[in-house]
């Protein structure tokens, strides 16, 4: 019974994690094997034990869903193939979660920053980064976000997250980042 309850709570929390940004997440007591029963969902990592003894402030338990590392909303990056601006399937859940957040809070303003690797024309890369940011914006809009909530900009190859002239750095830098403009970011 207790295990079943734990499983149900876990399932509910995982659903909340994936789709409901406004609810806090508690997952400290979850056993690993309950996560294994839900093979399509990534396992929930145990919370920091120190969190349990922290006094509760005005913020929700687990903190801001946008920055809580256990919340999918804390994930902000979509990665792209070389010279491509197609959003790959593996990044669609992240984009969907942010679409929901934007839909539920119409005051939220997002800026999407497109980036490219260092190869080729700086201006063309600026446009390519823009296409990447726009591709994420289009998906967000498709899922209910308003176009007025989202500004897209491009840094092209100018602000590489990873330095170096190798495939690892290039892969990291072919990226669009979703940032909230009026949420202290």
């Amino acid at each position: 019974m207790r295990k079943l309850l734990a499983a149900l709570i876990t399932a509910a929390l995982l659903a909340a994690c994936a789709t409901d940004p406004t609810k806090e997440q508690e997952g400290a007591a979850v056993e690993d094997r309950t996560a294994q029963q839900l093979p399509t969902v990534p396992p929930v990592k145990p919370a920091d034990p120190g969190a349990a003894v922290k006094p509760l402030g005005t913020t929700q338990v687990g903190g801001d869903p946008l920055t809580d590392p256990r919340n999918i909303l804390s994930k902000r990056s979509v990665y792209f193939d070389f010279d491509s601006y197609a959003v790959k399937d593996e990044y669609k859940p992240v984009v969907a979660a942010h679409a929901k957040y934007l839909t539920q809070d119409r005051q939220a303003q997002m800026r999407i920053e497109g980036n490219t690797d260092e190869r080729g024309s700086r201006e063309y890369n600026l446009a390519l980064g823009q296409r990447r940011a726009d591709a994420v914006k289009q998906l967000l809009q498709l899922l209910g976000a308003s176009p007025t909530q989202i500004e897209t900009v491009s840094f092209g190859e100018e602000k590489p997250k990873a330095s170096g002239s190798n495939e690892a750095a290039w892969t990291e830098n072919r990226r669009a980042d979703m940032k909230y403009k009026n949420r202290g970011e």
Binding site: E123, R131, E151
Partner: peptide, 27 residues
């Protein structure tokens, strides 16, 4: 403008610039 503004090129008479803007979507 809204979005990116880039790639300036001068007209030969120095009065205009061709630029790339994304204000209306796309570059």
């Amino acid at each position: 403008h809204w979005g990116s503004n880039s790639a300036p090129s001068w007209s030969p008479d120095g009065r205009r610039l061709a630029v790339t803007l994304t204000k209306d979507g796309g570059s």
